[in-house]
Amino acid sequence: MRKVLFPVLFLLAFSPAFGQSSQAERFIDSFVTKNNFNGTVLLAKNDKAWYRKSFGTANFRLNIPNTTDTRYKVASITKAFTAVLILQLYEQGKIDLNKSISSYLPDYKGEGADKVTVTQLLNMTSGIHNMDAGLTLESALKNGMPQYQAPHTSDEMLALFCSGKLVNEPGKVWDYNNADYIILGKIIERTTGKTFEQNLRSSILQPLKMANTGIAYQQEIIPRLADTYFYRDDIKAMVNDLPVYPENWYAAGAMYSTADDILKFSNALFGKKLLKQTTLDQMFTSGKDEYGYGVWVYKDYDIHGKHYTIIKRPGSIMGAQAMLFHVLEEGSTIIILSNTGTTSLDEFAAKIAARIVR
């Protein structure tokens, strides 16, 4: 009897109450069916995963199923990693968050060189012309996406797409701009003398044993990486993602990972293994549009009449969809990685949270 009982007690110690967990599982199954979701869902409490399940297909042509070992493009979850790398250099005294771009990139040609600070890049208030302004599916189908459909080095991305004029006074207006994080990637490289990828590996991936995480390159075949698909309303069909060079998203969105590896990152971040508490307090300060440094921070988020702090980092590039959703006071983490753009992961995560947090 003791041999049977112990695993049950261990499971209950690290998961929500049985009623909540079963309710969450029923909801997830229903939501997946209704929304044709393809991907992996992982739920954790106090660093321990208590639910992980994969759905649908990683490769439609060959009918290869998604599994918990499937790697997914995680899009803008990359920005949370970039923010951590910058803040680690800040803790080491190598970067001053209040200094301008030109302090670290003296050859930067943009109008904001001496006006935009590292902090303003982190919190998306740089005022730099948005590199994706006017980009829509219709324009991409007609004219392509020069930012992403031609091969560019990160230096070329900086010069061609991230060095434009200021359209707003720095610090005054929030505007979600991939250019801000491409500039941050170049600041990391220039400060350390190592590539962004080398910094990522040595400072985060290797210490956390994130062996299934890296930067996606067009020329590389990455084992177990899910193909990505999105739904086109104009032809009412699921189609392959448009051909791109994923590395062009660089420090703003070029990473791939698994749900379990993202949990390792989440656990280390919120467990103060990557940054000190005082630095986390800066990262998790809710600024304009409730954005902190690389993450959204929602204070007083209401769940069943109680108020929580939600740290959220979504990602979306065509069919590559990703969500890291953390309830700070509860220690509950929701990770959703998908290879099809068929549903809102914001809605999915919020509805799961309502079923696992009490």
Rank of each mutant, 00 (worst) to 15 (best):
T33R: 10
N46D: 15
I356C: 10
M1H: 14
K312H: 12
R313A: 14
Y72V: 09
I334A: 01
H307C: 10
T213S: 06
K288Q: 15
G185L: 00
T192Y: 00
G112H: 00
A113T: 00
K79H: 02
A211I: 13
Q20M: 14
A237C: 09
T278I: 10
A237G: 09
V167M: 00
I187R: 01
A251F: 00
E138M: 13
T125I: 04
F37C: 03
G110E: 06
I182R: 00
L87A: 06
Y293F: 15
N177I: 03
A354N: 14
Y231F: 15
N267I: 07
M124G: 07
I183A: 02
P65D: 08
S126D: 03
Y298Q: 08
V357I: 15
R355I: 02
T119M: 09
Q147P: 07
G112L: 02
G305R: 13
K142I: 11
A17L: 12
P314Q: 05
I128K: 01
T333Y: 02
A259K: 09
D227K: 15
L105A: 04
V74F: 11
A349R: 06
L85N: 06
R190V: 00
Y51G: 03
I221L: 14
Q20W: 11
P223F: 07
A252G: 07
K273N: 14
R355W: 05
T195D: 00
K186D: 03
Q282L: 15
N178V: 07
M145A: 13
G134R: 12
L137I: 14
L137F: 14
L9G: 05
P151V: 11
T40D: 12
S54H: 09
